[in-house]
Amino acid sequence: MRTRLTILGAALLLTMGCERVVDITVPTMATRLVVSARLELVRGSPSNGAPSGRQVITLSTSAPYFETAGPPPARGAEVRVTDSRGMTTVFREQASAPGVYVTDSLVPVLHRRYTLRVRWNNESYEGSDSLLPVAPIDSFYFVERTGLFAPPDVAREPGPRATIDFRDPSGVENYYVWDQFVDGKRLVEADTAFRYRPMERDAFFNGALVRGYQPYSGVVLRPGQTVRLRHMSLSEQGYRFYLALNNVTLGDGSPFSTPPASVRGNVANLTRPGEPALGYFLLAEVDERTARVP
């Protein structure tokens, strides 16, 4: 019995010490339209003046998995947005930026529903979302991380964090997402520690005064840095899209994590219903604040 166990152990060690190169063939899927479109109503502080009518929609196409270049632009598309009262705005492609479609005359109106229509490559696409109000920021300041629910390692790390106070409206469901820029650089980028956007629904604080909220509690700031925090509303369907996107992004490969996959958006292909566009079309009211860390 001892001899058999010794032989078995030696075999296991030999197996663990081997390396094998495996070539993986990834099938190439058909080219799909990719939509990146978030129309915004930026409120901010009174010093910002009237909301801007400039809106940008980026259209690109899918590419092979191991492609190292950026996504190919979707050139020559017809792009327009129509609100629930029948007002239509045409987006023009930029000569200097193929695949980027811009207008300077669309200021979204709260509680209206907007529909994106795209005609590209002899196919028609359509997606809709509604503009809901965001609870305005009452205060924007910098304090140490002291939240009860902060991970121990985050809570112990010294240094100020960007912090806001706001009152959530009562009686309605609200959905929030945040972007934070430090010295002009957005924190959420591919291949960084922050691969997802902080987001919340008001299930546990409906109608409450939210004090000392730190969307990016893990980001320790340094004196002199300039921080811009964007506090945005989402529709319920927009929130669910971001939630699914976060789950895929944070997958750690364990048996219980979400497997990597394309997240279905809300832009349908009317010509070929089985091939919807990737990406998402959404609207958001934005309240943003900018301050220098003391």
Rank of each mutant, 00 (worst) to 15 (best):
G44M: 00
D202Q: 07
G274P: 01
A155G: 03
S52L: 10
P198R: 05
L13G: 07
D179P: 01
M232D: 01
V35M: 11
A97R: 13
A203H: 10
E78H: 07
P158S: 01
A155H: 05
A77W: 08
A277E: 00
D153V: 10
S139C: 03
L110R: 11
D165P: 02
G70I: 03
N121S: 13
L106S: 03
N247D: 12
T249G: 03
W178N: 08
P223T: 15
V79M: 02
Y213A: 08
C18P: 00
P255R: 10
L132W: 11
T249F: 12
V182F: 10
M87Y: 09
L59K: 05
T249S: 15
F194D: 12
V134H: 08
S96N: 08
V22D: 10
G159T: 10
V220I: 14
L14D: 04
A150Q: 11
S52K: 09
P136E: 03
S139F: 04
V143K: 13
T115I: 07
S130I: 13
P133W: 07
P152I: 09
V220G: 12
V286C: 01
V35C: 08
P71A: 14
T15W: 15
F194S: 10
R32E: 15
T88A: 14
L245F: 11
P260Y: 13
G207Y: 09
F66L: 14
V102R: 04
P151S: 11
R4T: 10
R113K: 04
L110K: 09
A77E: 02
Y65A: 12
G253Q: 06
G147W: 02
G171E: 03
D183P: 04
T68E: 15
